[in-house]
Amino acid sequence: MQIQDFSIWEPLLGGVLIGLASAALMYFNGKIAGISGIFRGLLVPQPGAIAWRAMFIGGMVLAGLVMVLVSPQMFVDTAGRGMITTLVAGLLVGIGVRIGSGCTSGHGICGIGRLSLRSMASVGVFMAAGIGMVWVTNHLLGGVL
């Protein structure tokens, strides 16, 4: 393993903002900030729980739009994954987060933050699966996908 040049301050600042936002959602609304769960609630709506979810996802999308204008390099895609690959990746992510009850935010930030063993197990497993997949794509298949 080689370690490449990496940044500390932007990831840390971004992480702190994510943590503060997630804590604010618990403090004000009593909800776990799990993006996959919030988004699922828009696709498979439950009565009375649609508006706040739509507002949350809308806020995220708006933030993306603002940041693209302010700092487009934050959205540079150097991975070079193909369109079909990305579509399949999305499909797997969608299936996985629903069966596994959460993703990097709900299990990662909130779950580990709440010291949930279930979430710690989930994070350990999805990290391992992600590392395994990148080994296959980038080393076995040479990153051409």
Binding site: G96, V125, F126
Partner: peptide
Amino acid sequence: GAVIFGLGWGLGGF
């Protein structure tokens, strides 16, 4: 679920 999510995460980077 975590296995399937992780595979998709590594495949697409999102």
